[in-house]
Amino acid sequence: MMGRIFQYTVLFTATLFFLLPVYLVVVTALKEPAAITLDTTWQLPQVWYWASFVEAWTAFLPKMQNSFFLTIIATLLSAILGSLNGYVLAKWKFPGANIVFPLMLFGMFIPYQAVLIPLFQFVREIGLGGSLWGLILVHVVYGLPITTLIFRNYYAEIPDEMIEAGRIDGAGFFGIYSRIVFPLSVPGFVVVIIWQFTQIWNEFLFAVTLVSSPDQQPVTVALAQLAGGEAVQWNLPMAGALLAALPTLLVYILLGRYFIRGLLAGSVKG
């Protein structure tokens, strides 16, 4: 009995710790700017004030569109490439694959500050400077290690006998992929797409250095500037934070199972 009580005490304290910030965000976003004072921080708004959301929505809608555009294209591209790479590394190991693979994986751990300067020079030189396409390229490339890793581990579970059976039926490299491997990949794709979507949507460093024209800004940059600006009226950043968090939050709530799988895959073997 004591154990039970202890157990639920822990759970409820932890829930409080995790949800208090959410409560504060929501009530602040719903208060009139003038009603937001430090000593009434925790109180419910006296008047429900929705205008902050309207304002944040108008300010953020174009940035959200940028983020969606960028995230969807980069996610799909890196997922497709990752699937092909994973297929090769799991089933068609070429000599040296065991050396190449860890070299690829290293790319997902590097601090991007160590490549930032040559990176933006390179993006400028290939003519993608300042545009969303440059950012897409960067996200696709730096997404390759994790997507390759997830698909490689996923395809390793497909029995070699199935591949062999495909070969006996006369299918080659591409035939086996399209007829046997790809149809089995749906859960793998879901995991990878959710993971990449979350990562790219939430990313900030590349977004702030590579795309700086405000009409192309992704939503994280817009939020950082809104909240980091002067004379912060906290209702607006809070409403903005909610909007910026919404897509990834929805994905997480609706597809949480797959999200956790991606999470575990991120630690190489899980």
């Binding site: 933006f120 020079q121 993006v123 400028r124 400077g129 300042g130 702030v208 250095t209 590579l210 700086s212 024209s213 405000p214 009409d215 500037q225 809104l226 980091g228 600006g229 002067e230």
Partner: peptide
């Protein structure tokens, strides 16, 4: 007219953004 404003006291944020744009060959 496109009003590209980068907020932040005394332009500290704006100057960093301007730099990446100019160095990136995309001057306003």
């Amino acid at each position: 007219v496109e009003n590209a404003t980068v907020t932040g006291g005394a332009g500290v944020n704006a100057r960093a953004v301007l730099k990446t744009r100019m160095l990136g060959g995309d001057p306003p």
